[in-house]
Computed example of a mutant assay.
Amino acid sequence: MARLVQLGWNCTRAVPVFLTACVALTAACTSSSDSDSEKGTAAKPTVSAAPSKPAPLDPDEAAKADALAAYKAYWTEVPKAFAVPAIEGTDLKRYAAAEALSKAEVTVANLKKNHRVMTGEPVVTNATVTSAELEKKTPNVSISSCLDVSKWQITDKKTGKPAPVATNPVTKYVITSLLERWDGSWKVLKYDLHADQPC
């Protein structure tokens, strides 16, 4: 996942300030001495310095930001696949590989076999890069986040009603994931759910 900062301009305050500045400037010009006018000298307007450009983002921080963006995109595509259920038609393969993609494919196959889908969406918050090895031949980062699955449920595809499944009292817990950068793109390779760590 650059942010645009919008600067608001309060017109009701800006206009009087602008007019006051004009009046002051006019008064200064008319009160100049005759000797100044005879010499043809006039006060030169003050030129303010150009605004400084923001410092470029550190390459390591930029890489971490890209990894976090890919991680969030992964969690956008997973519920899309499970809602059909099908991997095709989603961008899941763009953001997942190896074990993470295999688990998704197995889940899709099981949902199809049992005529079920997953409705609603998981909520992922507090995604944070906990470690990074960006100088390796294959750069990688580890991300920890809080996963809330309370509004993401298995549903019978025919009836649209929640399917009877074993319930887990913990629906909001820590999940840790490993991402690697392949050919310039970050992919989720694997993840671990920590139901013993509610968040």
Rank of each mutant, 00 (worst) to 15 (best):
K161Y: 12
W182M: 09
W182C: 09
D183T: 08
T159M: 04
I143W: 01
T159V: 03
K137V: 14
D156S: 14
A163N: 11
G184M: 05
V149P: 00
D148Q: 06
S144I: 03
E135H: 14
A163E: 11
T171K: 13
I154L: 06
T167L: 13
T176G: 02
A163F: 12
P169V: 02
K161T: 11
K187D: 01
D156W: 04
P169T: 05
L147Y: 11
D156R: 05
R181C: 07
C146L: 04
S185A: 08
S185N: 08
K137N: 11
K136L: 12
D183C: 08
A163Q: 09
T138W: 08
K187A: 05
L147C: 07
V188N: 07
S145I: 02
K136D: 15
V141G: 01
V141R: 01
V170C: 01
I175C: 07
I143D: 03
C146R: 00
P139S: 05
S144Y: 02
K187L: 12
E135M: 10
L179M: 14
P169I: 02
D183H: 15
K161F: 10
K187V: 08
I175R: 11
L147G: 03
S145W: 00
T159S: 15
I143K: 00
V165H: 09
T159I: 01
T155S: 15
D148G: 04
K161L: 14
W152Y: 13
P164Q: 04
D148V: 03
K172S: 14
G160C: 09
V174M: 05
W152K: 02
Q153V: 14
C146Y: 03
C146W: 02
V141F: 02
G184W: 05
Q153M: 12
T159R: 02
V165M: 09
T159Y: 03
W186C: 00
W186E: 01
S150G: 08
K151Y: 06
C146D: 04
W186S: 01
I154S: 03
T171L: 15
P162S: 13
S150L: 07
P164R: 03
L147N: 04
Q153L: 12
T171S: 09
C146G: 03
V141L: 05
A163W: 06
K187Y: 07
